[in-house]
Design a protein around this nucleic acid. Structure first.
Length: 547
DNA sequence: CTAGGGTTAG
């Protein structure tokens, strides 16, 4: 038994989860009766593989084995059910355990956190919090799970608050805590806060930790400082494929396609084997920079030269690349050529391209697919209705909006974050609650005067609410990024660059007016939207209106 | 021989 169990443990440590399960079956066939030391690694493997049915079977075998399940086995069961997404089973095991420790509780919190996703299960973070608050004693892992959970839930600020709270309670952070904190900074574009986290990393001697280094690169890139990202990259004592991917991905979101390609060349020269994510990064770099031919070349070389087969993410990148460039039919063929049922993401990328290029005929066809596959996802309705508006089909646009409301599908409210004086401020559409609202509105009025003087004419076509003509001009000033820009301007010294983060993609109207604003106030304005960075300066944007 | 949190892309 000792040697069987030791082999199982080794396989799990090496990440060979399928092998672990095979070995377990083999030992059963040879008539061995597994014990607690056997079940733990096997459950661990099931958890990693998200193999719920296999896990259930092991659970039954534990019960039949007559072994008295100890806290290790109990914890592994809770962990397995949590990771496999069955919080009900995790709860059942939890409630039946004669004794629990902090590991048990943490597994429960993680189970709730894992359920957080974009459309549904918004209550999960609340459930996680409830468990967290009930915990008799919290250790560093409990805090880490909560920090990561809030980042995943889109509450980066709350995650940073948790970090402060944990220190107040005297819990020592671990390297992974800083990974979570850096993620939080990246998610809300908190560069100064990120620099402080970097100081912490150096002070603790964790800067040689590859995970931490990778997160630092990502944080700096997502907070707008590719220079700092590159500095970290160059100083890292050891790099892995993620390090390279993070750097390539950093160039990609800034629209520096050529540099991304160079970084890839360097990666190859140093003999680092690219993986599937590398190609997602590369293809998205090509897409953001309009490097269509290069993208097509990478796409074909990934399977022929690097032996990496394209999965749905690569197809989605290609659809985006071709579609954005206006090659709509090739993009559509790419969706149809997928060797499995196309995912919504692929149709969505194509629908986005139809919107950009005003192709109503294809857009309607594609939207039908999207709305069939995910009728509860607002993005499909929004894209189609925007396509109608942009092509002058107002009634059709209103129709789609009505349909969306009838099915009570909610849009994600637009949200913008800006860091001023080391503090992150949040704005939503038509925000009325900010303390400085009067000043902000005065600033918007002042800007609008300056912009008109500079030759700016608002294009009301792009206001996509269901409102009357006169109201539209008014509404244009109330998109959350406008409010954040005005706030940033009045709260920082003249000439200081602004950096803002938005949860949705910047609309064409805001894009145009931000170009004007950068010119009339003489400021560099960086905007990170859901997709990429826009660097506005002197009336121009780094994306060259290609986005 | 047994337990928990993690990095990139979309």
């Amino acid at each position: 038994m000792f040697s069987w169990n030791r082999r199982l443990a080794r396989y799990v440590k090496a990440g060979q989860h399928e092998k672990t399960i095979e070995l377990y079956q083999e030992m059963q066939q040879k008539g061995m009766s597994p014990d607690n030391f056997t079940f733990v690694p096997v459950l661990n493997a099931c958890a990693s593989l998200r193999a719920l049915e296999a896990g259930r079977k092991v659970h039954e075998e534990i019960i039949q084995s007559g072994c008295k399940a100890d806290v290790f086995v109990g914890n592994s069961l809770v962990d397995m059910y949590s990771k496999c997404g069955s919080i009900e089973d995790a709860c059942k095991v939890f409630n039946n355990m004669p004794s629990r420790d902090v590991v048990t509780w943490n597994a429960m919190i993680l189970g709730h956190v894992n359920l957080i996703d974009m459309y549904a299960k918004c209550g999960s973070i609340e459930d996680a919090k409830r468990v967290f608050n009930k915990l008799p004693s919290r250790d560093v892992v409990s805090w880490n799970v909560m920090i990561f959970g809030h980042v995943k839930y889109g509450q980066g600020q709350k995650a940073l608050e948790l970090f402060r709270q944990m220190q107040e309670e005297g819990v020592q952070p671990a390297p992974l805590t800083l990974v979570g904190v850096l993620n939080a900074c990246a998610s809300v574009v908190a560069l100064e806060e990120g620099r402080r986290a970097h100081d912490w990393v150096i002070k603790s001697g964790w800067d040689s930790n590859v995970f931490v280094g990778n997160s630092l690169i990502d944080m700096y890139a997502k907070c707008g400082s590719l220079e700092d990202a590159l500095k970290v990259f160059n100083k890292m004592p050891s790099r892995d494929v993620v390090t390279w991917n993070a750097m390539i991905g950093g160039y990609a979101i800034h629209g520096h396609g050529k540099e991304a390609l160079k970084q890839f060349e360097q990666m190859r020269e140093e003999g680092v084997q690219p993986d599937d994510t590398t190609f997602v990064c590369l293809l998205s770099a090509c897409s953001h920079s309009g490097l269509v031919d290069e993208g097509l070349r990478f796409y074909s070389s990934m399977s022929t030269v690097y032996m990496i087969s394209a999965d749905f993410q690569h197809y989605t990148c290609m659809v985006d690349l071709l579609g954005r460039a206006g090659r709509l039919h090739e993009a559509e063929n790419m969706v149809l050529a997928m060797p499995y049922k196309p995912q919504v993401a692929a149709w969505m990328a194509l629908l986005g391209a139809c919107r950009i290029h005003g192709n109503v005929e294809m857009g309607e066809r594609v939207a039908k697919q999207v709305l069939e596959l995910e009728p509860e996802n607002a993005a499909g309705y929004v894209l189609l209705s925007n396509l109608y508006t942009a092509t002058g089909n107002r009634d059709l646009s209103k129709n789609i909006e009505r349909q969306r409301k009838e099915r009570s599908v909610k849009k994600h409210p637009g949200r913008t974050w800006i860091e001023v004086d080391n503090e992150v401020h949040t704005f939503v559409v038509d925000d009325q609650h900010h303390l400085q609202m009067i000043e902000i509105h005065a600033e918007l009025k002042r800007l609008s005067g300056l912009m008109h003087y500079a030759g700016y004419v608002p294009d009301t076509n792009f206001v996509l609410h269901d409102v009357e003509e006169e109201e539209k001009v008014f509404n244009l000033c109330h998109h959350s990024e406008k409010l954040a820009i005005a706030f940033g301007l009045i709260n920082s010294a003249p000439g200081t660059p602004l950096c803002i983060r938005k949860n949705l993609r910047v609309c064409r109207h805001c894009h145009t007016s931000t170009k004007f604003i950068s010119k009339v106030v003489g400021r560099a304005i960086m905007v990170r939207d859901a997709n990429r960075f826009h660097h506005f300066q002197d009336g121009e944007c780094s994306c060259r209106d290609y986005w």
